[in-house]
Amino acid sequence: MKVLFFAALRETMGQSEIEIVLEAPTTVGALKAMIKMPNGETLNAASRNQSIMAAVDQEMVDDLATVSVASEVAFFPPVTGG
């Protein structure tokens, strides 16, 4: 499955996209605990100090949402358009 990062989080991660092989469906929260930032901290740990929003298949979701083995997941800071 594909994980995308946008804006400040994309810069922190140093990449806009990673590929993760899931053997079974999981949750957004569990996925955040699997993904490490370059400083070694997981996204889960980082989200205690900064707001990290999530989308699964292009719909905004919370940490309890299900991620399937073929989902497109994205993490990003709160949006600032308009």
């Binding site: 804006a7 990003f76 800071p77 949006v79 358009g81 308009g82």
Partner: peptide, 13 residues
């Protein structure tokens, strides 16, 4: 506009 500000996935730098 209020929904666009909080839900549409744009970011400004």
């Amino acid at each position: 506009m209020d929904y666009l500000k909080t839900n549409a996935t744009f970011w400004k730098k």
